[in-house]
Write a protein that binds this DNA or RNA. Structure first.
Lengths: 330, 330
DNA sequence: TTGTATGCGTTATCAT
DNA sequence: ATGATAACGCATACAA
C-alpha cells in the first residue's frame, strides 16, 4: 500500500502539499495539484483511514443503530443507508441494540472513541438526556425516531398521518368498532405516541369513543398478532376491524382469525403497517400503510454527511409522506 | 478518553508494561499486572482501535459481505453474526455486494488497508482466483458459500442434502412430475450446483427422468415466482409439484396459482427453502427446508476469530444439518 | 505558495 | 522483569 510519502516522492513535493491536495486546502498551485493527483492515480493511493482517525480526523465510517436487523423494516432501511453511504465513500458499521439500553450506550460510545464519524439512530431506547451528551463527540441523526426536545436533525415518516389515514379508511368502510395495536403503552408520551395521536384524531373526527378493551399494547411480532386475535375472540363485544401497527402482527392476526373460521374482511377487517413483501402474499392480500423507507435512509445519510462537512449544523426536521395501499383485507 | 499513558502514570509503570498486560505478554510480574488492571478499570480505559490499526494490529472489526441485506436469509445471517461478534467485542462492518464483482473486490480491499481484521463472505461473485490473493492480507471465511478449490475455512449448509430431502418428500407424496427452480443456470458447475445435484440424485434414485421444460433458471424473487407459475400454465404437460429454491419464489408461485384457480397442494404442490417467517403465513402454510442460519453465523464468527488468534490456521469445512419442515403446501 | 517538525495512541525493538 | 524510544500514516502549527 502506497503512503502519502510515496506520493510526495513521486510528485517531487512534500507530504504537506500532498495532504493539502487531499483535503482541498487553498494555497496549492494548480500545477502541483495536478502533479499530486497524477502521482496518486499512478500509485493507486488512498489515504489510510486509521491514520486519519488517529490524527483526529474523519473515519469515513458511519454507525447505524437498529433494534433488530431481521425486522424487514430495518433491513430495508439499512439497505438504503448502505447504498447511499457507499456512493459517498462511507462505510457502514451496524449495531443491533436489541432494545437494550446498555448496548445502545455502548454503541454511542464509539463516537467518543472516534471509531465512527457520526451515528444514525433508527430507534431510541434510552432517555434523550442520556443520549444528548454524545452529540458533542460527533453528529447524531435521528432516522425514523423522533424526540421532541432533541436538538438534532431528524428524518422521519409522519406516523401520525399514516395511522390517521389508515383508521380513516376503516371508518369509510363503515367500521365503528376499531381495535388498535401499539408497540408501546398507549401513553401520552413514549413509544408510538404519534401513531396513537393519529388513531385518536381519526376516531374523534368521526365521533367514535375509544374502547379500552380494544387497545393492545406492546405488540411486535407474528406471535403477538396471534395472541391479539385470541384475546379478541374472548370478547363479548368484538371490534369489526383492527389496526395492527405492522404487517407482521397483521399476519399473526390473520392466521389466527382464519383458523377460527372468521372471514376477512367481512368478520374482521385487518390493516397492517410497512407494506412489507408479505403484505402482498397474505390471503387476502393485506391493506397496509407504505412508508418511503428508501427515501428516509437516503435523507438520513445525506443529512449526516452534510453535518460532517459543514461546521454549521442546521437542525432540520424532515417529514416524509406516507401512503395507504388498499388491498383485500379491508 | 484516557490513553495508555494515563494508565501507565496512574499505575506508576511504563507504557510498555501496560501494553504487555493489554496483550497478555509474558514477563510481567503478577503484582504489576494487577496494578495495571486496576488502573485501567479506574480510568475506564479502552485501547484506541485506530492507533492499534495504524500500528498494524487488530482492528476488532470484521467485515461481512452479503449480496443484499433485505433478503431475509441474509438479514438473519447478519443478525447472528452481529450478536456473536458483539459478545466477542468485535464490530461488524456490513457490505452489500449487490451481486456486483467490482463492489466485492472493493470490500475485499479493506483487508489490505487493514480496515478490518477479517472478512466473512456469504456470497461470492468473482472467480476464486481473483479473491484468493486477498487472503494474504487477512483471514477470509466462507459462510454459506462454497468453493471446492479454495484453501480457506468454510461453514455451510448441506444444500445438496436439503434439496435431496425436499425432492424425496415430494416423491414420497406420489409426485413424479417435479418442477425445479434454481438461482443459477442448472449447470454442472456454478451457482447452486450442490442443490442441482441433490435434485438429480433424488430423481435418479426414483428412476425419474429430468424434464428440461420444468427447469427454471435464474429465479430469485416473488416476482420471479409469479412468472414461473405463468410459464407452467402455458405448458401442455405440467409438473404436479415444484421445488422453488426459496420461500419468496414459493410465495410468488402460490399467489399466481391461486389466482388461476389451482388448488394447493392438490393441483400443484409447492415446497420452499429457508423457512422464513412468511412460510407459516402463507395459505396453505408452506412446506419448506429449514436452514440453521443462526448456527451458521455463529460458527463463521467463531471460526474467523480462531483464525485471528491462532497463527496456525486449520482449514476446516463445516457442514451443518438441514431440516424438512412439512406444512400444508405438499 | 511550500516545507519542516511534531504528535495522535499503540506496539516492537532494543537495552537494562 | 521493566523501560526508553522509534515507528505506523497522516494533518497541522509554524517557519520560510
Amino acid at each position: 500500500m502506497p503512503t502519502i510519502t510515496d506520493v510526495a516522492k513521486l510528485a517531487g513535493l512534500s507530504k504537506t502539499t500532498v495532504s493539502r491536495v487531499l483535503n482541498n486546502h487553498p494555497y496549492v498551485s494548480k500545477e502541483n495539484k495536478v502533479l499530486v493527483q497524477k502521482a496518486m492515480e499512478q500509485l493507486g493511493y488512498s489515504p489510510n483511514p486509521s491514520a486519519r482517525r488517529l490524527r483526529g480526523q474523519l473515519t469515513c465510517t458511519i454507525g447505524v443503530i437498529v433494534p433488530r436487523i431481521v425486522n424487514p423494516f430495518f433491513s430495508y432501511l439499512v439497505n438504503s443507508i448502505e447504498k447511499v453511504a457507499y456512493k459517498n465513500n462511507y462505510q457502514v458499521l451496524i449495531f443491533q441494540s436489541d432494545e437494550n439500553k446498555e448496548k445502545e450506550l455502548n454503541f454511542l460510545n464509539l463516537l467518543k472513541i472516534k471509531q465512527v464519524d457520526g451515528i444514525i439512530m433508527t430507534s431510541i431506547e434510552n432517555e434523550w438526556d442520556s443520549i444528548e451528551q454524545y452529540t458533542k463527540y460527533g453528529p447524531i441523526m435521528l432516522c425514523n425516531e423522533y424526540v421532541n426536545n432533541a436538538k438534532v436533525p431528524m428524518v422521519r415518516l409522519d406516523q401520525s398521518e399514516g395511522t390517521y389515514i389508515g383508521i380513516k379508511h376503516l371508518i369509510e368502510r363503515g367500521h365503528k368498532k376499531i381495535g388498535y395495536c401499539t408497540g408501546g403503552l398507549f401513553a401520552e408520551d413514549g413509544k408510538d405516541k404519534d401513531r396513537n395521536q393519529g388513531y385518536q384524531k381519526a376516531l374523534k373526527e368521526a365521533g367514535i369513543a375509544i374502547n379500552p378493551n380494544w387497545i393492545f399494547v406492546n405488540q411486535h411480532s407474528i406471535e403477538d398478532g396471534k395472541q391479539v386475535m385470541n384475546q379478541i375472540l374472548t370478547l363479548n363485544d368484538r371490534p369489526t376491524a383492527i389496526f395492527t401497527g405492522s404487517d407482521e402482527i397483521a399476519g399473526g392476526v390473520m392466521i389466527e382469525a382464519k383458523k377460527h373460521g372468521l372471514k376477512i374482511p367481512d368478520d374482521i377487517a385487518i390493516i397492517g403497517f410497512d407494506d412489507q413483501p408479505i403484505a402482498e402474499l397474505l390471503e387476502p392480500a393485506l391493506t397496509t400503510i407504505r412508508q418511503p423507507i428508501d427515501q428516509m435512509g437516503e435523507k438520513a445519510v445525506e443529512g449526516l454527511i452534510a453535518m460532517l462537512n459543514n461546521q454549521e449544523v442546521q437542525i432540520k426536521k424532515i417529514d416524509l409522506p406516507i401512503q395507504l395501499v388498499i388491498r383485500k383485507s379491508t
